[in-house]
């Protein structure tokens, strides 16, 4: 599976694909929503940093409440039917900064936003690996919808 052509996504990006390819990313307190249409074998992933766009600045995809609906729309544009899409969600670790006051439960809020939005769209979450204190590397195989997950050392993200 790791030999598949991999599309790496950074914070604030989404990628939707089909065929023999994979989508991968590295997560800390960020969350990635992986969507898979098992009928058409279309896979998509986002990677967002913060839960909410608060009206300041642009509506970029680094915000969960902007990025996740955009990912769903991108899947629908590819021909997916909402009823055939299932979700796997990853990330949302509690990353403690040097100054512990900066830890404002970003990971938890990111997780909550993913779950709420998927629930709004009635997309079933079939698997998840969330929270904790370690980062994650994930790779979504677009051929079969399986996700490879490995925990990272703290210095990796």
């Amino acid at each position: 599976m790791t030999n598949l052509c991999t599309n790496f996504i950074h914070v604030g990006q989404i990628h939707v694909d089909r065929g023999s390819t994979s989508i991968s990313t590295v997560l800390g307190s960020c969350v990635a929503v992986c969507l898979y249409d098992k009928k058409l074998c279309i896979g998509g992933m986002n990677h967002y940093l913060l839960p909410f766009w608060n009206g300041n600045g642009l509506q970029s995809l680094k915000f969960g409440n902007i990025s996740t609906p955009k990912l769903i729309e991108a899947m629908l544009e590819q021909g997916s039917n909402i009823g055939n899409i299932e979700a796997k969600i990853f990330g949302g670790a509690s990353i403690y900064f040097l100054n512990s006051n900066q830890n404002i439960m970003v990971g938890e809020k990111n997780i909550l936003v993913a779950k709420e939005i998927l629930n709004d769209y009635k997309i079933k979450i079939v698997a998840e690996d969330l929270g904790g204190t370690l980062g994650r590397k994930i790779q979504l195989n677009v051929q079969n919808g399986k996700v490879l997950l490995k925990y990272t050392a703290k210095s990796d993200f």
Partner: peptide, 13 residues
């Protein structure tokens, strides 16, 4: 992909 050189012992979900 340097972080992805190896997915040995990765969990498949």
């Amino acid at each position: 992909e340097f972080l992805f050189e190896s997915f040995d012992n990765a969990i498949e979900i």
